[in-house]
Amino acid sequence: MAELFGVDRTSIVRHIRNIYKSEELDESSTCAKSAQVRMEGQRQIVREIPLYNLDVIISVGYRVNSKNATSFRRWATSVLKQYIIKGYAINQQIKLDRYKELKDVVRLMSRAIGLQEEVSNEEYGGLFNVISDYVYALDTLDHYDYQSLAIQKTTSDASFHATYDNAMEAINALNPNRSLDFNSC
């Protein structure tokens, strides 16, 4: 945190102590102790290193007086303002990535429509199944990104269940001149 906010380590330690002293945050839920073990000469030294969560970093960022901390506060305030005004904040990079992915799907569908007369109905249906699965995967990732992931559809019957026997059958089908059996190894 000292490096992040561009201040001395003692300043960070003082702010953290004051955060816990004023009961702004609860130490037991925002700090974990991690044991660091190393050899110094012939002695084994064990030190407990505190690891702080995001709540502590934000609280310290609002207390520290430095250019880095000021930049942090401006950024954090703008994100909070977006939440207050819009009810949510948008990650612009994710938004651009999703837009590019949507354009790719539209291009793929456009090409598929152009190929409609050149491919069989089965191939055409398969292509649209792939596109549909892709869109479903994008939706699932989007729900994960916004912490709203829920199981939306499942299948009760598996169309294929991999076993040793059918895997060996598939491997042997690839090379009909040679039969493999790993059980005999």
Rank of each mutant, 00 (worst) to 15 (best):
M1Q: 03
A2H: 09
A2Q: 09
L4T: 02
L4Y: 06
F5L: 03
V7W: 02
V7A: 14
V7E: 03
D8R: 14
R9F: 06
V13E: 05
I16K: 00
I16Y: 01
R17K: 11
N18Q: 12
K21D: 08
K21C: 10
S22N: 05
E24S: 05
D26F: 04
E27K: 08
S28A: 12
S28R: 07
S29F: 07
S34Q: 13
S34R: 13
S34G: 02
S34E: 08
A35F: 12
V37I: 10
R38V: 04
R38Y: 11
G41E: 03
G41H: 06
Q42A: 07
R43D: 13
R47L: 08
E48V: 13
E48S: 11
L51M: 07
L54R: 15
D55T: 05
V56H: 00
I58F: 04
S59E: 00
Y62H: 02
V64P: 00
V64N: 00
N65G: 14
N65T: 09
N65P: 02
S66G: 06
F72C: 01
R73Q: 07
R73Y: 04
A76P: 01
S78I: 02
V79W: 04
V79I: 13
L80N: 09
Y83E: 10
I85W: 03
G87S: 14
A89E: 04
N91F: 06
N91K: 08
Q92V: 11
Q92L: 14
Q93S: 13
K95S: 13
L96R: 07
L96C: 10
D97L: 15
Y99R: 05
E101M: 10
D104G: 04
V105A: 09
R107A: 11
R107V: 11
R111P: 01
R111L: 07
G114A: 11
E117A: 13
V119C: 15
V119P: 01
E122N: 11
G125N: 09
G125A: 14
G126T: 12
L127G: 09
V130Q: 13
V130P: 01
I131K: 02
I131V: 13
D133T: 06
D133L: 05
V135G: 03
V135F: 01
A137I: 04
L138I: 04
D139P: 00
D139A: 12
T140L: 04
H143C: 05
D145S: 05
D145M: 05
D145T: 02
Y146C: 09
S148R: 11
S148Q: 08
A150G: 03
I151M: 07
I151N: 05
I151L: 14
I151G: 06
S156D: 08
S156P: 00
D157C: 14
H161P: 00
T163P: 00
D165L: 08
D165M: 08
N166G: 04
A170G: 09
I171K: 12
A173E: 06
A173Q: 14
L174Y: 03
N175H: 13
P176L: 05
R178A: 12
D181P: 00
F182L: 10
N183S: 15
S184R: 12
S184I: 15
